[in-house]
Computed example of a mutant assay.
Amino acid sequence: MNKKILFVLGMMLFLNCNTSKSDEDNKFYFSFYNNKNVRTKAGMFIVERKKGTLLDSVFVYEKNKKVLSFQENLDKHGVYRYILNKKTLTHSLNDSLTLSVNYDLSFIPFINKETTLINKKTYMFNQKHYKIYHYSEVQSNHRSFDSYYLENVGFICYYNFDSDNYILCDSTNIESLKIKEVTNQLINDTTFFARYTVAKLFPKYYRKPNNKISL
């Protein structure tokens, strides 16, 4: 009798653990868009975030193959990454400081050498507020780009001014997060999206013709 009770309790615990784990595994789908806002490559990256008690585990997939994984924590100060057992504040939410990572690893557009908070803006959709942070990120001495992070969510957009292309999160399995409506406001905001703000700084910027997909 005791064995039956233990078996039932064990099965209930197993099912409860699996259910909570499934509910907390969030997926974000990123597509590639060209300079005409045409989606030329759907599902370029899939980012899976597994919620943890203290840290989230983040997995990046490209063509169904895992290409990057790290642990991350989001708090009121910013985004902390744990890579090679090193805790690093990679994206400040409060100060426009240039932050340099202390590990020898980079992976565009997720892991880069330096980040600087440029500004932030709050959008509203269905009576909900969505705060987005805009960063300048440096991958190498000769390559930089702009990225955008959504509060309590993380990375949602990468923009390359050299090619005028961008990677955008346009789908997620979180039903309560209307990500497409939020990111659509972002890419059409002439006062916040780097396509427009950087163009004002460099009105005569020349881009070499290039039809290839490029980050």
Rank of each mutant, 00 (worst) to 15 (best):
K180I: 04
L15N: 10
Y166I: 07
C17D: 12
L6F: 02
Y149S: 11
T172N: 14
T122Y: 05
D189V: 06
V60Q: 00
M1I: 00
K3F: 00
L105R: 10
V60E: 01
C157T: 08
I187R: 03
F32N: 15
K4I: 02
K87M: 00
S106K: 01
N165Y: 08
S69K: 04
T40P: 02
L74K: 05
E181Q: 13
D25F: 09
G154S: 14
K178H: 14
N184E: 14
D23Q: 13
K21Q: 15
V101N: 06
L68Q: 11
Y103D: 00
T53G: 04
Y80I: 00
K76D: 13
F7T: 11
N184F: 06
G154A: 11
D170L: 02
L186M: 05
S100N: 15
L186P: 01
I179N: 12
N102M: 04
F125K: 02
V67D: 06
N165W: 04
L150F: 07
T40Q: 13
Y29L: 13
D189R: 07
Y29T: 12
E137K: 10
F45W: 05
E151R: 02
Q139Y: 13
Y205F: 15
L168M: 09
I174L: 08
E175R: 10
E181M: 06
K178P: 08
R81T: 03
Y80K: 00
N37K: 11
K51C: 01
F192N: 04
L13S: 13
C17H: 11
N141A: 06
Y33G: 02
